[in-house]
Design a protein around this nucleic acid. Structure first.
Lengths: 145, 145
DNA sequence: AAGTTTATTGAAACGTTTTTTCAATAAGGG
DNA sequence: CCCTTATTGAAAAAACGTTTCAATAAACTT
């Protein structure tokens, strides 16, 4: 089982005690090669180009596992929340409404903001979700033309 | 058509040019009386106690309409994004992981944070989503006992 | 109050997304 | 190589959401 070209997330999977199967590697590769959020069916379609026996169920299971391990995150919108994108060390998604590209950004200052909310409301805060949506520079440029 | 006890959102609906039907009022009342995020089926069950002929399809349609008007918002989580809660003037949800209560909070400082991201990335930012999850004071107290 | 207009309804049917079941397969260890 | 068992994928099922359309009811007009 050669892992010379395995995406970086593969090591994290192995380190967590999971097996590196061909279907999982195909899913990982699709996620690695695409910076737009992709829904399970799109991942399935692209994954079958890499591993033709890939099953849609496996895509769902793999995404769930990766999400559990914090390696991917769901991409949220008001209408649909079906897409997933890779999750790096930066925690927050910046989503282009034009090309659907998903970029991560660190959000300095959010800790202070959360602390203020904690003091105002008495809530502990254990999880937070922040997504910003707008147009990336490339889409801004092409819309201006 | 008496609206003596109509929830506040009813006026917003009427002002937007929509009819205040019994099914819609039932949905509005359910949302008004519950501070936990509720999924469509839960709203349907509770709504039928108010208006027995209520249909599930109507719940979905009413939620869509209310969301379109900014009167309710979807509640997001990593696993499921099926719940809705009332939306007031404050924009952001604070969700209790214990009792599922959804509270809104204003988030002073987020504008500055978004501006910093804009300058770092070149993105315009037209929408933002922020949710904080933790334990409310009541659940903290009951867990400590 | 009665009549008219038309927005809205709900059940049935349908479409989409996600999960379960289970025999078969394959990853990884000895 | 053999063994263990995690994982797979197709079929089936469950869950979530939308469309169709005749009937109903909200709101307006007279």
């Amino acid at each position: 089982m050669a892992d010379l070209n395995a995406p970086p997330m593969a090591q994290a999977l192995r380190d967590a005690g999971y097996r590196l199967t061909q279907p999982r590697l195909a899913v990982l590769q699709v996620l690695d090669e695409n910076d737009a959020g992709l829904n399970p069916e799109a991942i399935y379609d692209r994954g079958r180009a890499i591993y033709p026996s890939l099953g849609l169920v496996t895509v769902y299971r793999t995404l769930d596992l990766l999400a559990e391990l914090g390696l991917v995150r769901r991409v949220h919108s008001e209408h649909r929340c079906h897409s997933y994108a890779s999750a790096g060390t930066d925690r927050h998604h910046l989503i282009c409404a034009g090309c659907h590209r998903v970029t991560e950004f660190p959000c300095n200052g959010l800790d202070a903001l959360i602390e203020a909310v904690r003091q105002q409301t008495g809530y502990t805060v254990t999880e937070h979700l922040l997504e910003l949506t707008g147009l990336c520079p490339a889409c801004q440029a092409s819309q201006a033309a």
